[in-house]
Amino acid sequence: MVPLAHVLTLSAALFVLGVAGFIIRRNVITIFMCIELMLNAVNLAFIGFARHLGSLDGQLFVFFVIVVAAAEAAVGLAIIIALFRNHESLTIDEIDSMKL
């Protein structure tokens, strides 16, 4: 049986990778993938905790997160497609018609 600390370390590492990618990456789709990585890191933490605590709530939460992530992907990709139609670019630095 894998101890809880290992699961949490992996989850934290994946989460930090996601955050770092979100900040460093410049392509909209890659940024979106980094956000998905963050959500899945959280799922891992929930499952680890649920098994450690012997409670079902955490596993239940994971299902809700998966559903929400799917809805988010649908909305997000639709927005990104509309963006590509208007700007013909997916680089975040070139999407700057409004001043900062």
Binding site: F15, V19, F32, A41
Partner: peptide, 22 residues
């Protein structure tokens, strides 16, 4: 452009919030 920025930062903040919740 507004929708993309709002979406990316909003989803990112949901990720942070969710980590706190876990």
């Amino acid at each position: 452009e507004a929708a993309v920025k709002f979406f990316l930062l909003g989803a990112f903040s949901s990720g942070l919030l969710l980590y706190g919740m876990s």
